[in-house]
Write a protein that binds this DNA or RNA. Structure first.
Lengths: 220, 220
DNA sequence: AAAAATTTTTAGATTTACCTAAAAATAAAA
DNA sequence: TTTTATTTTTAGGTAAATCTAAAAATTTTT
């Protein structure tokens, strides 16, 4: 059994490991709003418990057990987000912090029943895939909006930024999950992207375009 | 803002205060499965925070703020129990431990929306009243089954014991909330009670009878 | 490849919630 | 009203998770 804090470390390492193989101490510290010295302490503890492989100065990787534990926390987090949005009418930009707490509730029975109650959803309100009870989930093969070329079209299926500010901004622009878009122009000056959204032309910054995921149902 | 542990102390003191005015150190320790010395430490901390009034060797009472905080935790606990039973099909003997964790989730918005989602229930699955968002709830004027006389009848509306063993036992006997019963006999030998439940005679021990609450809709 | 910069670790403290053992206060019994 | 028993507190210590400051290892730059 892991503590609340250990679970948070595992989850953070799991997410960071999506980008780099060996996760660095400083990266964990930044993500967790703590100090590198504290991270080193915790890493040693997790290594002792067999949850991470750790070589001094070389960063960490999750062991099989560590990874499964992390995926289980991610599963809980995303299921609770679905609950909050689908059943309690929270907006997609309001759920993160509460789910951050709910994900640590320990009952397995609770999560299985919640999953069933929600109809075994495959994705959370931000489009992120929900692992099943065995930890399996489809690798998302989505492309970043910024990588599309003029004329390409597709459907918004996810975001890579969960901050309330970003999500509210998308909502205001009408860029929510499931919306179909087409790239009409890319500005040379600042790299901002002109897109066609249900008949209307809208302009989004390069920074915004970087964090929108598209299931590209057709090239130009 | 209180810690998880502080909240548990406040809740425990609140429940113990239903029986005695000044709650004793040992009583808290026993209830919380901890040692009296630890309780003294925590009491001092709660007193410093203005949540309890404390005079050395004289036990504690909750201040207005402390009481409101406690009631809020009770509210959360009971609403989550309703959720678990009504929405996730848990049985009434399975919900206590999970609710014990869920009650500490901090979002006010969450609880208000949950309350609404559940249809503003007035009682939890064990018949205990759920405080509204202002902390107000009807004082339950129920009588213990053991206090009824032969011929008295009424409806089961609560229990004063939440252990799984006790609740499962009641379930097996068919003594669930809402059931109408009548006292047909009280055994001299061991004080066990003979009751009439939907046409059938059943016998329950004195110990069981002590923990069943009846809304007495009529004396003999 | 030596110097400089960055990253990571160690050493030593702090805070929270506990504990044990012993002392002090209160309550009950002789 | 002493003595005895019970309850409560104090004193001193532990483990978890954090911190700062300084040392060590690694990486980058010159």
């Amino acid at each position: 059994m892991q503590s609340y804090t250990e679970e948070n470390y595992l989850k953070t390492i799991y997410h960071l490991a999506e980008k780099t193989t060996n996760v660095q101490t400083n990266a964990i510290a930044e993500q967790m709003q703590t100090k590198p010295a504290s991270v080193t302490d915790m890493i040693k503890k997790l290594a002792d418990k067999g949850l991470v492989d750790y070589i001094k100065y070389q960063g960490v990787t999750l062991t099989e057990i560590g990874k499964n534990t992390a995926i289980d926390i991610v599963r809980k987090h995303r299921l609770w987000e679905v609950f909050l949005v689908d059943k309690l009418n929270f907006k997609w930009d309001e759920v993160h912090d509460v789910a951050e707490e709910l994900e640590h509730i320990k009952s397995i029975e609770l999560i299985e029943r919640l999953d069933e109650f929600l109809g075994f959803p495959k994705a959370d309100p931000h489009g992120d895939p929900i692992p099943d009870k065995n930890g399996r989930f489809a690798k998302t093969q989505f492309i970043k909006l910024i990588e599309l070329k003029i004329g390409d079209h597709g459907t918004i299926t996810g975001v890579t930024q969960h901050s309330s500010a970003f999500l509210k901004h998308l909502e205001k622009l009408g860029l929510t999950l499931g919306k179909k878009i087409q790239i009409s122009d890319v500005t040379d000056f600042d790299g901002s992207v002109e897109i066609l959204l249900s008949g209307k032309q809208i302009n989004i910054s390069r920074e915004v375009a970087k964090h929108i995921l598209i299931s590209s149902n057709g090239k130009n």
